[in-house]
């Protein structure tokens, strides 16, 4: 009995761990796409963020400084994407592809410069802390390696991710800023004719998405693991993109989708650890196949924001 409880706790724990980086990027995706700009550059933004986060945390010893700088690194790529898509009517997917090349390029270029030609950083001295760690252990409120420990003794980034989802939901649906942002994504001409600056809102949204994707990268490199390597962010940005779509462009939906994806990953690791007689490579396909099945099954035709991907040009000159 006890072992089953711990098994479940283990799966929940790994689920939370793997979902978190995705949540940041997916919420970033929700914000930009709600403003009408597709951002398939999330992958490159996460990649760059993961590197900058680990590098800064390594040199300063301060994981929070790394976390913040990771956000700024992602935001800088977001700025590029915004310049292309908002100011120069770029094809949004093409610009996103460029961002992916740039994110990977910048991360590895700088990595080779500062880490002696290597495409990975050294181990950071301090990871993102476990804020509730003091509750667990000998003579504390909860025993270590028990259910509560396995589930709730998580990195601060996990709790921040949940907080982020709440804040994003609140801003999008309860504030005038959020209403304007949604209006811009649905009908930019309408917003423009009411004096709302489509330009400013979209710049803000795309930069914010870069910031969040950067945080997501750092949540991987300085919390889940303790260094950046060139294989760390292999496709997470794209998975976040999928999570955003099957979360129907809502922060809470994206969270749920990330949890499902993380859950599939957690299950895969658990089954691998338990020696289930399915080859590990085939188990690894589970999250991806599950995503396709869910998309095919019931989210395929869900409605994106009406103006998404369309160029908004005031026709002035």
């Amino acid at each position: 009995m006890e072992s089953y409880v711990n098994d479940i706790a283990f799966i929940i724990g790994t689920t939370l761990m793997y979902s978190t980086p995705l949540v940041y990027a997916a919420v970033g995706g929700v914000i930009t796409e709600r403003s009408g700009i597709i951002n398939i550059g999330l992958e490159g933004m996460m990649y760059f963020g993961a590197f900058v986060g680990a590098a800064v945390a390594y040199f300063t010893g301060d994981p929070w400084m790394g976390f913040l700088c990771a956000g700024l690194a992602g935001a800088s790529l977001g700025l590029l994407h915004a310049i292309a898509t908002v100011s120069f009517s770029a094809e949004q997917i093409v610009s996103g592809i460029a961002i992916n090349f740039l994110g990977v390029g910048f991360a590895l270029f700088i990595s080779r410069l500062v880490f002696d030609g290597a495409t990975q950083t050294l181990t950071v001295p301090n990871k993102i802390p476990l804020p509730l760690d003091f509750l667990f252990g000998e003579g504390k409120l909860f025993v270590s390696a028990g259910f509560m420990d396995l589930v709730f003794n998580r990195f601060a980034t996990v709790y921040l991710a949940f907080l982020l989802v709440f804040v994003a939901w609140f801003v999008l649906y309860k504030t005038s800023l959020g209403m304007r942002l949604r209006a811009v994504g649905e009908h930019p001409e309408a917003a423009d004719s009411l004096g709302i600056s489509v330009f400013k809102i979209r710049y803000g949204a795309v930069i914010a998405s870069g910031f969040l994707a950067g945080l997501g990268g750092a949540a991987m490199s300085i919390a889940v693991v303790s260094r950046f390597s060139n294989t760390l962010i292999s496709g997470h940005g794209f998975i976040a993109l999928a999570a955003m779509i099957f979360g129907k462009w809502k922060p809470q939906g994206a969270l749920l989708a990330c949890l499902i994806f993380g859950g599939a990953k957690g299950l895969e690791i658990f089954m691998g650890a338990k020696g289930v007689p399915i080859p590990s490579s085939l188990l690894a396909t589970l999250p991806y196949i599950l995503t396709i099945v869910i998309l095919v099954g019931w989210v395929g035709r869900s409605q994106p924001p009406a103006s998404i991907g369309k160029i908004f040009d005031k026709g002035e000159n």
Partner: peptide, 17 residues
């Protein structure tokens, strides 16, 4: 120039909420 998924009131006050 109306935002279809929004309500009448939301459309009217948009930008001057």
């Amino acid at each position: 120039k109306l935002v279809e998924p929004f309500t009448v009131a939301e459309n009217i006050v948009l930008g001057l909420e």
